[in-house]
């Protein structure tokens, strides 16, 4: 199986990249091809990078409270480009009810503080296998 390609992205203005970097390194160590955007990205920059880099997964890290604005916009931009096959997942400081609303809107699972990185790795692997078996 080819390696899973993941874009780890920091939308918005918050500068907390500890989590994004730890997750990016953990996914790379688990054999995925990981691209990290750096800080302060707009949804447009993230969607463009995801399409140009032809990734399977976009992982959004957001701790600023702007998740209800920025995450749906990334989803919409990918959909507008016909790329709803890309998994949009992520995490940060996001209250449970907001996570539920975002997942209902079409994101994959969202993760909160204290999540072991192994859980993210397993989740992405399982999602990828399910997608590949559908398209095969």
């Amino acid at each position: 199986m080819r390696p899973i390609r993941v874009l780890v992205a920091k939308p918005g203005l918050d500068g907390h990249d500890r989590g994004a970097k730890v997750v990016a390194a953990a996914l790379r160590d688990a054999g995925m091809e990981v691209i990290y955007t750096g800080l302060h990205q707009t949804p447009e920059m993230i969607a463009t990078a995801a399409i140009q880099e032809d990734v399977d997964v976009v992982g959004l890290s957001i701790l600023s409270g702007a998740h209800m604005t920025l995450i749906p916009r990334v989803l919409d931009l990918l959909r507008a480009d016909g790329r709803d096959d890309i998994l949009v997942t992520g995490g940060g400081i996001i209250p449970r009810e907001d996570m539920d609303a975002l997942e209902a809107r079409g994101t994959g699972r969202l993760f909160g503080p204290g999540t072991p990185t192994s859980e993210l790795v397993d989740y992405i692997h399982d999602w990828f296998e399910a997608r590949e078996s559908q398209t095969a």
């Binding site: 203005l13 702007a66 920025l70």
Partner: peptide, 17 residues
């Protein structure tokens, strides 16, 4: 965050924040 980064509240980059 907009203030921390030097953006006004009505700047496009501030939306949602």
């Amino acid at each position: 965050f907009p203030t921390l980064m030097g953006y006004d509240s009505d700047h496009p980059r501030s939306e949602g924040e």
